[in-house]
Structures are given as structure tokens and as C-alpha cells.
Nucleic acid binder design. Structure first.
Lengths: 192, 192
DNA sequence: CAGCCAGACGCAACTTCTTCGCATTAAGCT
DNA sequence: AGCTTAATGCGAAGAAGTTGCGTCTGGCTG
């Protein structure tokens, strides 16, 4: 029904999924997201539309699948020598990527998928994994580390809220402020 | 192009918009959100599909408009005698309403509209208004009041993050915890 | 108050998308 | 190698989305 539960990983199903996903990425780059249709994607992928409808149900689910893949971080967070520096760098990059036109589109597409299939949850898991990696590294240095839940509440959630609901009120200064709050070096109500 | 900028408030346009919105609400209750189509809505509203397409562009924009209207609070927040009680009650109700299947759908639909038209920003404004009303009332009692930005960061954003990305990790205990953090009575990393 | 103008609507034809049954093919298993 | 299961291709039928054109409503001017 989706990219999950591919019963035959090495077989034709896998190839079809791969070529369809690739077709989505290609066509999105060429024509823009709003021009995508199932028949168009299917033709580019070399399959029939009915195959896409059977496997993904509708365009939303397909785009949701592809969007989540794009939101997956491709590398562990960079090491800047201290938790504060690592967190700031990660948060700023996160905010920049997610608040771009493309980033917001991916997030919205990911949220559109069936909640039961967990595409949205996967987005959060990606951020949590990155934060956990930062924390483990900092703990190795002997630094005190807030737990991941706290970082999600204090840094990620406010960033995502602004990205989705108040895109004009996002800035590097605000991001740094959130990191400061998370590390206990400034009050939640300090200047923004 | 949308519910905004209705040039002739008392005229036919207004009646059409009203009947279309009502048709969306009725059909959504009867058939479920996924069964909605423009022709169906238009038939129920007594207009032709082309009218809907011309005024709203597509189904997404129409649903976005209707969703935002539903998210508008219908009354000022209840008065429970103290800021803490008011905030807790408001936050719990907010979380309950928004995390319901219908609530999540409304939020997702609202996010789907054209970002330039500010349907998403309006959602945030509604919450900000309610929080501001709470704050003004508490200040009238002589209580110290966190500013609205802080409450959005500490209470609303984490709630919304869980509603959208981690619906299974939302609880009244968590909501109360967030309110405690906002009022400075517990650390961000206390038990959840 | 009568007539004019701009904008919105209805109608209808057309295009595209979506769904469905059935035949075919590929993958996994013994 | 042969068999079973499941996914894909194909094509037709139905539904939805799109567009141009004529009509009508409502507001405005003289």
C-alpha cells in the first residue's frame, strides 16, 4: 500500500517503486509540484496509472512517501566541538531547510499522508535521531545534556510551529534564542 | 479567489459563499471528508461546479477556507479565577479539540491553502488572541503574566507539534506539564 | 428613478483523471 | 522445474476538472 511492507524487496515491486519515486522527483524539478498528476508520473516511470493507484491509493499518499524520503537527513550532524555550537548549527540548518519553499512543501506533503502509516511520525523521528546523536557526542565530552524530549519541545516544536503557521517570524536570532533556552542560559522570555 | 475580498457582502456572491460553505459542512458530516468533491458540493449548494472552481480555484482552497472558519474560537476563554487554572483549562481544551480526528483534519486543510493568503497564520492568530485575553484578565488580577510569544513557544507549539507529528504522545499530563513550564513552576525537563 | 457597467453565475462541451475487471507476467517456494 | 501468490498491464466506463460564452444580478451614475 506504500513504501512500507514491500514484500519482495529485490523484485519487480521494488523496481516499480523506485522508478515511480524517481519520476516524481524528476517531474517535480521540471514542472513544479502543482503540475504533478498520476498519469504523468506513471508515464515517466514506465508503468500504467492503475499501478500507481493500486500501490499508493492516490497522489497525496505517493507525494507523502516521496516527501518523507527527502526529509531524511543524509548525514550525522556536524561536530563543532561543543553541544551549544553543535545545537546552534543544527537548529539553524534545520530551520533554513524546512522553511524554504521546497522544505515547507515537503513537510506539508508528508503531513498529508495517512497518519496511520506514520509518515509524519517519521519526520519527528529523523529530528530526534539527529538530536540524540548530538547528545551522545556531548555526553562523551562530559557535557550535561538535555534529553531529546526537551529539545523537541523547546527547539524543534517552536521552529516547526513558525515554519508552518508563521513563516514570516522566523530568524536566526530566534533560533539561537531557542537553543539558549534549551541549554538553560536564557529565560524563555528573553528578547527575540 | 477566496472568502476574503468579497466585494458585495449583501449580494448574491455572499449567498453563494454561504451556501457552499454550508454544503461542505453538511456533506463532511454525512459522508466524511474524503468523499467530498467539487461537483458534489456544488450540487448540494445549488450552484454549478464551475462557480466553485472560479471562486476558490480548487477543492483544497475551499476546504482550507472552511477549515479555518471552524478553527475560529467561538467564545473567549473561560474564567477559572487564576492564570494557572485558566491556562490549563484552555490548553487542555485546545489539545483535545485539535487532536481529534476532525481537528487534525481541519488543521491540515488549513495548512493546505495558499500560504500567501494567510489561512495558516490565522490559526495562530486565533490562539494568540485567546492567550492575550487570558493574560489581560490575569494582569487585571495583579498576576505576573508571561507574554504571548512565550506562551506560543512553550505551550502551543509543543502541543501542535505533537498533534501533527506525534499524535500518540499527547496527554493531559503532558499539557499540564507545559503549562507548568510556562508559568515557571517546573523545569522544561521535568517528568512527562 | 431609469439605464449602464462590471462582475458573478449557469450552461454545455471538452479534457483529464479515476476506477474496475480480466488477462498476463514475475517472484518466491517446494 | 513446476506451482502458487501477488503485482502489473490493458482497456473501457464513469466521474471529476476545465473552459468559453451568454445571461443575469447588483451597484452606480446621471
Amino acid at each position: 500500500m506504500s513504501s512500507r511492507a514491500t514484500t519482495r524487496p529485490g523484485g519487480r515491486s521494488a523496481r516499480v517503486q523506485q522508478s515511480v519515486h524517481q519520476a516524481v522527483r524528476d517531474l517535480e524539478a521540471e514542472l513544479g509540484r502543482d503540475a504533478l498528476t498520476v498519469p504523468l508520473i506513471a508515464a515517466r516511470a514506465g508503468v500504467t496509472p492503475s499501478t500507481v493507484y493500486r500501490r499508493w491509493g492516490d497522489l497525496r499518499e505517493l507525494l507523502s512517501d516521496v516527501a518523507v524520503e527527502r526529509l531524511r537527513p543524509d548525514a550525522p550532524p556536524a561536530d563543532h566541538g561543543s553541544l551549544r555550537a553543535d545545537l546552534e548549527a543544527w537548529a539553524v540548518q534545520f530551520a533554513e531547510e524546512m522553511s524554504s519553499t521546497a522544505g515547507r512543501t515537503y513537510i506539508r506533503d508528508a503531513l498529508l499522508g495517512d497518519p496511520e502509516q506514520g509518515n509524519a511520525a517519521r519526520c519527528s523521528d529523523y529530528a530526534a535521531e539527529q538530536l540524540k546523536a548530538l547528545g551522545v557526542r556531548a555526553a562523551g565530552r562530559g557535557e550535561a545534556v538535555p534529553d531529546v524530549e526537551t529539545l523537541l519541545d523547546v527547539v524543534v516544536a517552536p521552529l516547526m510551529y513558525r515554519i508552518l503557521f508563521r513563516p514570516s517570524d522566523l530568524s536566526v536570532a530566534y533560533t539561537d534564542h531557542l537553543v539558549g533556552v534549551a541549554l538553560g542560559r536564557s529565560a524563555p522570555l528573553s528578547p527575540r
